[in-house]
Amino acid sequence: MTMVATRTEVSTRERRWRPDRAGAPIVLVLVLIGGTVLFGDSFASGQNLRNIALDSSYLLLIATGMTFVILSGGIDLSVGSLLALAGVLTAYGAQWGSLVAVALPLLVCAAFGLVNGLLIGRAMIAPFIVTLAALLFARGLAFAVSSEGNTVHIIPADLLLTRIGQASWLGVQAPVWFALVAFGLGWVLLNLTRFGQAVFAIGGSQEATELMGLPVARVRILVYVLSAALTGMAGVLIAAQTSSGLPTIGEGRELEAIAAVVIGGTLLSGGAGSLSGTLAGVLLLKVIQNLINQVGTLTAYYQQVVSGTFLIVVVLVQLRLARRRRR
Rank of each mutant, 00 (worst) to 15 (best):
T8I: 00
T8N: 14
E9R: 13
S11V: 13
R16G: 01
R18A: 14
A24Y: 06
T36W: 15
F43N: 01
S45Q: 05
S45W: 11
S45A: 07
I62C: 14
S72A: 15
S72H: 03
G74C: 09
L83C: 04
A86T: 06
V88K: 07
Y92M: 00
L99F: 15
L107H: 02
A110V: 04
N116I: 02
L119R: 04
G121H: 07
L132I: 10
A133D: 02
L135V: 11
L135M: 15
H153T: 10
I155L: 14
P156K: 02
D158V: 00
L160R: 09
I164E: 03
G165L: 06
A167Q: 08
L170N: 03
V181H: 05
F183S: 03
F183P: 00
L185I: 14
G186S: 15
V188K: 10
I202M: 04
Q206T: 15
V216R: 08
V216A: 13
R218H: 09
S227H: 03
G235C: 08
I238C: 02
A239P: 03
Q241C: 05
T242L: 15
T242E: 12
E251Y: 03
A259S: 12
T266S: 08
S276P: 00
T278S: 10
L283A: 07
L284Y: 07
Q289P: 02
L291K: 05
T297S: 14
T297P: 01
T297L: 14
T309D: 00
T309H: 00
